[in-house]
Design a protein around this nucleic acid. Sequence first.
DNA 1: AATTTCATTTTTCTCGACATTATTTATTTT
DNA 2: AAAATAAATAATGTCGAGAAAAATGAAATT
Lengths: 249, 249
Amino acid sequence: MTENSAGQPDTPYSPTNVTLDAGNTLAQAACKALRVDIIRGVRSPGERLRIEKLKTIYNVGPTPLREALQMLAADQLVLAEGNRGFTVAPLDLNEFEDLNRARTAIETAALRLSIADGGTDWEAGVVAASYVLKKEDAALLQANGGVTDAWEQANSAFHTAIVSACGSRWLLRARRGLHDQCERYRRASVYRKRGERDLNAEHQAIAEAALARNVDLACTLTERHFALTASLLSDATSRLEADRKASTG
Amino acid sequence: MTENSAGQPDTPYSPTNVTLDAGNTLAQAACKALRVDIIRGVRSPGERLRIEKLKTIYNVGPTPLREALQMLAADQLVLAEGNRGFTVAPLDLNEFEDLNRARTAIETAALRLSIADGGTDWEAGVVAASYVLKKEDAALLQANGGVTDAWEQANSAFHTAIVSACGSRWLLRARRGLHDQCERYRRASVYRKRGERDLNAEHQAIAEAALARNVDLACTLTERHFALTASLLSDATSRLEADRKASTG
DNA sequence: AATTTCATTTTTCTCGACATTATTTATTTT
DNA sequence: AAAATAAATAATGTCGAGAAAAATGAAATT
């Protein structure tokens, strides 16, 4: 298997296989599988998504595939330029600044509402997710650089739990879209200076502030938390850009 | 032409015709046309969107139509239930509370950022949009109930101008999606107690607070502005529900 | 040598017909 | 009347042909 400049395998995962659960179509199933693959980097940023190729990979006909790609294009995970086919939305670190600003704004807005409205069940959810994440944060210190699947899930679950009581599914939806995008950047990058960061401490502090109903502190900590991630990602700029150019073919 | 219980024509507009400008496909063009029609109520909430019917209305084949509908489903303007076809997303006033909460949160978040970052060009944009809206607000007082096309455009342009300097296209995108949804509710409803409301005063106050860089005031006024609209929409609950049931067929 | 023009090739998109599958409606049976 | 079965209807998926657009490459021009 080929490797990139950081010594990480190019495709750590194999394509998600398309399975249609009851009550939805092949197009929706293909969309789901492709979404996961794009977020996890199985389909790498900038990659051309030719129908003929995808047909053989996912065992789905052209019609549901095109529909799936159009849905993903609506979510900005895929780029659909007229008459030029589909490509995985490229990662652009200028764009990321913009993206991170949006996600921070929405996350803190949801956080405010959630802390104001959250009941005991919310508190319990936060405590539980915090507990799971604590272990994954510790495990991440042992890992050699890359973000793992289990950590991503625990991290995502933790932040979701904290904002879950905001009382607006629409807000949570908007938030999810931005988080999916951010996850792509996280997974594509490698934490070079991870030693300088104590993720566990950050997460625990956020959880504590939220449970103490200290709105302003929780928001401030979250903002810093996201900003810190962003600055570490920026460190990986050159590598990302270099890899992109290298894989143009 | 048939009329609903408020004496408004059921379909005040005719279907937008699908025209493909350079650089995009029929599917995208159909999506754009359908989006406009759904937002304006040309295709009414809950309406079944059968491919065969749409083919004759929009003069587009089944393939691009399905793709367009899937895109709109991703934006929650269309409901795609597996193997049961497509329907225009219904209007639900419980849902609207949720929706309005999300839009208020995102709007005020963008507002904060915009007021902090906005330069002279931003100020000029706000002043200009405010001027245009002033006239439309006045014209609305003469109109008998329903929100007009021109007012919607001016209103949308005004609120967009105010948040335009927030520095995040992703945030503006999330915001637009929610505004499109809200516009559907506004247009579907009729302002019954419009006499009790001075829209122009509200808008001018928001503009003034923003230009004076009074962040908290601008946000508070915007929140009230949205909440007031929401409460007036709630008044129209019974009519909306009744019309929906009447048109089931 | 660089650029433009034109024709060729390739890719993408759209259409329509048909097969398959799921859902709804009608009928029969218990 | 309720449940089970069968027919009708509608939605989805597959395929292949053809149209339209973009990319490619060769020849002509500057």
